[in-house]
Design a binder for these strands. Structure first.
Length: 105
DNA sequence: GGAATGACGATAA
DNA sequence: ATTATCGCCATTC
């Protein structure tokens, strides 16, 4: 599979994340692991978002521990607050904001 | 081809 | 809560 396709898969999934919710890099990797190819790892997703994430709501993608995107914390937090995402200070409340795509099965 | 790198993750101290 | 390490694995030197 061309890396381009994996990128598409990641971006389209990120676009499906509802407002007020977030997904961790690891979660995205895990979901794509079933849909796209056998691949899937947090590092890959992060790397892809870094290069191609400019066209999707990247602020809805956070680290598994709720930490927002490094280098864009100010911007991300601002948008998340605006969307009503459950925040706990400067990090996302994963317990309440974590979202998974509807299970097709 | 081998080493370094990276918007990660889990665990240990 | 924070820092340090190790594991992951494709991409990029």
């Amino acid at each position: 599979m061309d890396p381009e396709e994996y990128v598409e898969a990641v971006l389209s999934l990120v676009e499906r994340i509802p407002e007020g919710r977030v997904m961790s890099y690891g979660a995205i990797a895990e979901v794509l692991r079933d849909r796209a190819d056998g691949r899937g790892s947090a590092r890959r997703v992060g790397s892809i978002m870094a290069h191609y994430g400019g066209s999707v709501p990247w602020h809805r993608v956070v680290a598994a521990n709720g930490r927002v995107v490094p280098g864009h914390e100010r911007e991300a937090l601002r948008r998340l607050r605006g969307e009503g995402t459950p925040l706990r200070g400067d990090h996302v409340d994963m317990r309440a904001a974590a979202w998974w795509p509807p299970d097709p099965r």
